[in-house]
Design a protein around this nucleic acid. Structure first.
Lengths: 147, 147
DNA sequence: CCCTTATTGAAAAGATTTTTCAATAAGGGC
DNA sequence: GCCCTTATTGAAAAATCTTTTCAATAAGGG
């Protein structure tokens, strides 16, 4: 099943109605390979549903986040970008130029977390890990810019 | 040397003047053990310098960040908290209740980064790692609340 | 095909951050 | 110590971004 269909189904099961506005937001974000801001989702969503309002983008993101389908992605330049949630224990690697986002897993923070809990007395509950860099396409483009 | 003195000296060497507004911001943030928002810094700073303006807090933070002395700390509830920068390769462990922040080091992401670069074609430049939990004081307080 | 009520978009309100601007004061030069 | 230049200030205005309000609409269970 495509991610957008799954999201619509999950909204339905969460007791929410399927409206044109929500379908447009889902369609844009579920299949995106880049993190998107509310304004970008709004703009792209209007191509599918011209009457879409920015407010509905915000409200739909709120629900998708609540259902665990969407995550907010923070960056130095701003914290208002969204992306499909990682499944299981995954994090994202982000291109700083084109905003492409790629999931990865395989970090092993257990030993570190255990050690820090013992040393600091904190009970550690969650962690954020994000990697930043340049995707291969943007690397080529940057080299071209330098010429 | 205390951190606040070091910051003042660094501002000076960066070509900036030492003003009462800047001294107040530095005094508040350099010795803080908690992440602080601009509004909190403003409020606390006014106790040392009542004429302080919120605008100067923003402008001073901008300069301190530019000099690498201060970092912006992001959280789910908001991205507008500030804290002294980590020295060298350090990250922060944050209490979700009282905003206490503790530096740590010892994460070893090299193998992961190397593997991902090979697999994805990205050139990985930076990473963000943050741990969230409850400090021991807040753990006790939460247990009391539950009673 | 209703009928209830969740949802909508527009406009207003809020919150936060940035810009503008005349007044002030930092600190180098004397 | 005292000018003099000019960076810096705080207040107010403007710009952004997000949330709330509200009457109109439409989703979807019966």
């Amino acid at each position: 099943m495509r991610r957008s269909e799954f999201w619509l189904q999950a909204l339905r099961q969460g007791g929410y109605r399927l409206t044109a506005a929500r379908r447009a937001v889902v369609r844009v974000l579920a299949e995106s390979e880049h993190t998107l801001t509310p304004a970008e989702i709004y703009q792209a969503g209007r191509r599918f549903y011209p009457a879409l309002g920015l407010v509905s983008v915000y409200r739909t993101l709120e629900k998708l986040e609540e259902l665990g389908l969407v995550q907010r992605v923070h960056r130095a330049e701003g914290c208002n970008t969204y992306f499909p949630s990682a499944e299981g224990h995954q994090h994202v690697l982000l291109c700083r130029r084109c905003q492409q986002a790629v999931f990865f897993s395989g970090d092993d923070l257990e030993p570190l977390v255990g050690r820090l809990q013992a040393e600091t007395g904190f009970r550690i509950e969650r962690h954020w890990l994000q990697l930043f860099g340049l995707c291969s396409a943007c690397r080529e483009k940057e080299e071209k810019d330098d010429e």
